[in-house]
Simulated assay, not measured.
Amino acid sequence: MNISAIILTYNEEIHIRRCIENLLSVAEKIFVIDCFSTDATINICKEYKQVHVIQHEWPGNQAEQFNWALNNCPVKTEWILRLDADEYLMPESLQKLKKITADLTPEVNALSFILVRYFLGKRIKHGTGTIRLVRMFRTGKARYENRPMDEHMLVQEGIIKDTDIEFADNNLNNLEWWITKHLNYAKREARILLDQEHRECSPNQELSRHSRNKRRQKNIYARIPLFWRSFFYFCYRYFLRLGFLDGKEGFLWHFLQGWWYRTIVDEKIYSFLKKQK
């Protein structure tokens, strides 16, 4: 297949082998952009002839790192596929990808995949609806928007085709790691929401339809009062969207990601605004 894959890594020895071996049958080359990992990530990558490791210091967010990779990786294939190290294509989607790419018309420049979420080892099926993200595009036709987080792919021209290809986000680290990661995320999320509370952001037309809808929803969320919005969001996901059907793991996912994390974000916004008075 005429596809190169790009994976961003830092200390991903727990995930990288699974991700690479998942892509071997669909990617001609796999470029791993590593931030000088101190674990076995690089040694694992060196076991595979299709994998090319490029070291680059972390610039501060995924969008900048991925766009740097687009500028510096010697990609010669028609298509680029992006996955995180803790992600992989669902087994049945590997064959679907081969068929879909063989039948694409020239005006299609990007493909959106369906996100399959796992949390603490269990697939989360309820609460958030279908999430689509652009994860494959023609070389030279897309870049990430410059945002500290919650970045989406900008497709410069042509059609974004929605597919039924599924990719899994299945992180194997423990809950303590997840909480620490989201405490760091909260600072960047607060910056984004502060901007949206004072200036509604118009969804960029280069985004996919699903990304534009998500951006509009975030604009609405930003106008709801602090702390109440995280509570309402949890209730919406857990009760109205039937998140409770996913058992204990579902409760932890919706409570921690839908309520706790967003309450931490609001606390950072509240503390910032209080200092401005």
Rank of each mutant, 00 (worst) to 15 (best):
Asn2Ile: 12
Ile3Thr: 08
Ser4His: 02
Ile7Gln: 00
Ile7Ala: 00
Thr9Glu: 00
Asn11Met: 03
Glu12Thr: 00
Glu13Asn: 13
Ile14Asn: 07
Ile14Asp: 13
Glu21Trp: 11
Glu21Cys: 12
Leu23Phe: 01
Leu24Arg: 15
Ser25Gln: 08
Val26Cys: 14
Phe31Pro: 05
Ile33Trp: 09
Asp34Tyr: 15
Phe36Thr: 11
Ser37Asp: 00
Thr38Val: 09
Thr38Glu: 11
Thr41Leu: 11
Ile42Phe: 06
Asn43Trp: 01
Ile44Leu: 12
Lys46Tyr: 07
Val51Glu: 05
Ile54Val: 03
His56Gly: 02
His56Trp: 02
Glu57Lys: 13
Pro59Glu: 05
Gly60Ile: 05
Gln62Trp: 03
Gln62Ile: 04
Gln62Met: 14
Gln62Tyr: 14
Phe66Asp: 01
Leu70Pro: 04
Asn72Leu: 03
Lys76Met: 09
Glu78Cys: 09
Leu83Ala: 02
Asp84Trp: 06
Asp86Ile: 05
Asp86Phe: 03
Glu87Gln: 10
Glu87Arg: 05
Tyr88Gly: 03
Tyr88Ser: 07
Leu89Gly: 06
Leu89Ile: 15
Gln95Asn: 12
Lys99Gly: 00
Thr101Ala: 06
Ala102Asp: 09
Leu104Trp: 10
Thr105Cys: 11
Pro106His: 12
Asn109Ser: 09
Ser112Cys: 12
Ser112Glu: 10
Val116Tyr: 01
Arg117Val: 10
Tyr118Gly: 13
Ile124Glu: 07
Lys125Glu: 15
Gly127Lys: 15
Thr130Gln: 08
Arg132Met: 12
Val134His: 00
Val134Leu: 00
Lys141Arg: 12
Arg143Pro: 00
Met149Thr: 03
Asp150Gly: 11
Glu151Ser: 14
Glu151Arg: 00
Glu151Asp: 07
His152Phe: 09
Met153Ile: 11
Gln156Cys: 08
Asp162Thr: 12
Ile165Ser: 01
Asn170Arg: 09
Leu172Gln: 11
Leu172Trp: 12
Asn174Cys: 06
Trp178Thr: 10
Ile179Cys: 02
Tyr185Val: 12
Tyr185Leu: 14
Lys187Asp: 04
Glu189Phe: 06
Asp195Trp: 09
Cys201Met: 13
Pro203Thr: 01
Pro203Met: 04
Asn204Tyr: 08
Gln205Val: 14
Gln205Tyr: 10
Gln205Pro: 10
Glu206Ile: 02
Arg209Leu: 08
Arg215Ser: 10
Arg216Val: 07
Ile220Ala: 13
Ile220Tyr: 15
Phe227Ile: 14
Trp228Ile: 15
Trp228Ser: 08
Trp228Phe: 06
Ser230Asp: 10
Ser230Glu: 03
Phe232Met: 14
Phe234Thr: 02
Cys235Asn: 06
Arg237His: 06
Arg241Ala: 05
Arg241Gly: 01
Leu242Lys: 12
Gly243Glu: 05
Phe244Thr: 09
Leu245Arg: 15
Lys248Tyr: 12
Glu249Leu: 02
Gly250Arg: 04
Leu252Asp: 03
Leu252Lys: 11
Trp253Ala: 13
Leu256Glu: 05
Gln257Glu: 14
Gly258Tyr: 03
Tyr261Ile: 08
Thr263Tyr: 06
Ile264Ser: 01
Ile264Lys: 10
Asp266Met: 09
Phe272His: 11
Leu273Asn: 14
